[in-house]
């Protein structure tokens, strides 16, 4: 029972992280119908940026986190500007291949700059609040302060994002673009600006997820690929283009992965994400919360 509870909490933490990455995929897809393969690499760069801020520049963790978010936001906007914007009206296949190329470039850039070896976030740089003792739960299970922090942070950011989308002017513009980009631009919305903001927000949230994974696990060049694919599966599960769906999908996938890795086989950790992704696409392409459309071109 204690083990089960711990796996569930583990899954919720993973789910929070996946949700943070998945909204980045889903927001971009909702507006420009592009699977931004490079988003996983932005997440990985987020982890590295925070790691470098803390180790090389000796900054406090609480400065490093927003700094990393800002850097990733700029990176996301730059990638859109350099690679995707020129292809806005090209066939969708071209943009998808460009995104894969971008991912290839960024992942290997990180590998060449920082080496393929994984790095552990230095304990002395981690805020003392997060290294605190585990909190005992009824039934003998335990949960660490860091896990509680990640869950709270993810929930807080998700609520914030939800408010942003539904209450602000830019949020309204984003929803309009997601419904119909041409009509939105005819209504006087600067769609390019909306797309830029979308990339910035998605990348900043991805950076938060990266820093959290860096704190909880390790920072390595391959993390963007592994976690990125799982988060993408979460976005598909929730219904791609649907932000609430991405959050839900993240949590479901996180729990499924934790339980699968705990009870079935840890070698198939990622395979669970792939299987869920394939099954959803084949049997319910619109995902858990998406509107039902027969096929999505």
């Amino acid at each position: 029972m204690a083990q089960f509870l711990e796996q569930i909490i583990n899954g919720l933490v993973l789910g929070g992280i996946y949700a943070l990455i998945a909204v980045g995929y889903t927001m971009v897809y909702g507006i420009i119908q592009l699977i931004n393969f490079a988003h996983g690499e932005i997440f990985m760069f987020g982890a590295y940026f925070a790691f470098l801020c803390v180790t090389t520049f000796g900054l406090s963790f609480w400065v490093a986190l927003p700094l990393s978010m800002a850097m990733c936001a700029v990176m996301g906007m730059l990638i859109d500007f350099v690679a995707y914007r020129p292809l806005r009206n090209a066939p969708r296949l071209s943009a998808l291949i460009t995104a894969i190329g971008m991912s290839l470039v960024l992942q290997n850039l990180a590998r060449e700059i920082w080496g393929a070896r994984w790095r552990k976030f230095p304990v002395e740089a981690t805020p003392t609040v997060l290294t605190g003792n585990a909190i005992p739960l009824p039934g003998g299970a335990q949960v660490s302060f860091l896990d509680v922090f990640i869950i709270l942070l993810a929930v807080g950011l998700m609520i914030g994002l939800n408010r942003l989308i539904h209450l602000t002017k830019i949020g309204k513009a984003m929803r309009a673009c997601a419904q119909n980009r041409v009509a939105a631009s005819l209504m006087g919305i600067d769609t390019n600006r909306v797309i830029t903001v979308t990339f910035a927000i998605g990348s900043a949230l991805g950076a938060v997820a990266g820093v959290m994974v860096g704190l909880r696990e390790v920072t390595e060049p391959a993390m963007g690929y592994y976690k990125g694919v799982a988060a993408f599966a979460a976005a598909v599960l929730g219904g791609i283009g649907n932000i609430t769906g991405a959050m839900l999908g993240g949590v479901v996938l996180g729990v499924a992965e934790a339980l699968g890795a705990g009870y079935v086989s840890s070698g198939y950790r990622l395979a669970i994400a792939y299987i869920i992704m394939i099954l959803v696409i084949i049997f319910r392409p619109s995902g858990l919360l998406g509107k039902s459309t027969a096929t999505r071109a």
Partner: peptide, 14 residues
Amino acid sequence: RYLIFGILLILIMR
């Protein structure tokens, strides 16, 4: 090597 291939993909598409 892979970095170059990635750039190549992007440039061809562009």
